[in-house]
Simulated assay, not measured.
Amino acid sequence: MLTVTSDTLRAIAPRFSGDKAARQDEILTRINDELATTLERYAINTALRIAHFLAQTAHESAGFRTTEEFASGDAYEGRSDLGNTEPGDGMRYKGRGLIQLTGRANYRAFGEAVGIALEDEPERAAEPALSLVIACEYWRRRDINAHADRDDIIAATWAVNGGLNGLDDRRACLAKAKAELARHLFAPATALPVLRQGTRGPVVARLQHGLREAGITVGLDGDFGPGTKAAVITFQNQAGLVADGIVGAASWARLARNEPANA
């Protein structure tokens, strides 16, 4: 899996000052230790899936500076569709989390899913590490990985937001996320391994990025399957190399000509 830390999130998020910067730093610091393992547990583990998840959560959390909506929650009072049937439920079950959980019924359902009685302790949903888990659980329930695999920000945004609010900012965050992940994927390496069908991991994602930069259509999942092998053969034929579908030194060298300038 790609290495994702709070520094990755900082590279995507806007810069703040004063109290806003302090709150952002607190949230990112407290998320850091759980970030990689939580993403892996929810299969948010390819470059596209991670990029889309980070882009959506960056927007939803106002640049990772809040895990609780700014409004009071009074607008949700009496919303039976959210399970808010008791006086004060609107404010008690206001939006919390990196992707905001709203309403008594949702607090109950997600609490059961993550093994914490959120209906009884709704404020806990704003805890940074738990807010990450809640966002991942929401992501899984809506099968947003499928939209990310297609690089479909419209569908991903609709699944998260129920509309297309903030689409321009989500696009900007996605571009930053992709650039930051690509920077790690294309970091200089003293030696790149020979790759063939059956190989998996970040180095395969690097290969797939390189093929895309060369204009070859290929998935970006870190899995050297038949589709990636076909893409490699296409590239090798175009480059005048031995078209055996195996990526060795000659193929890496030709791909390097198409990599980002900071590689």
Rank of each mutant, 00 (worst) to 15 (best):
H184S: 02
L185E: 01
R171G: 03
A135H: 01
A214E: 04
E213F: 08
R206S: 00
L185T: 04
L174A: 14
N165M: 09
L181S: 07
F235K: 08
A187P: 05
V247R: 02
T228V: 11
T199M: 14
F186G: 06
D149Q: 12
Q236G: 05
I154R: 11
T217L: 03
L211G: 01
L211Q: 06
I134F: 00
A155H: 04
I233V: 15
V232L: 08
F224D: 02
D152P: 07
W139F: 07
D143A: 15
K176L: 14
A148T: 02
E213W: 08
D221L: 04
A249M: 10
D168S: 10
G219F: 00
A214M: 06
Y138H: 10
R170Y: 06
A230N: 13
R142E: 03
P202R: 07
D221C: 02
D168T: 14
V160S: 08
L167D: 03
A175I: 06
R196E: 14
D168G: 13
C173A: 11
I233T: 14
R212A: 01
R212V: 02
R170S: 06
R170P: 03
V160D: 13
K176F: 12
R150D: 09
I216F: 03
F224S: 04
D143H: 15
H147E: 14
V194Q: 14
E180Y: 05
A182W: 01
A250G: 07
F235E: 09
L164I: 13
T157Q: 07
I216Y: 03
A146G: 13
A182I: 07
A189T: 06
I153A: 05
I144M: 12
L220I: 05
F235R: 09
G227T: 14
P202S: 07
D244M: 13
R212G: 03
K229G: 02
G162N: 10
A231K: 04
T199S: 15
L167K: 10
T190W: 00
A191F: 08
V160N: 12
I233N: 12
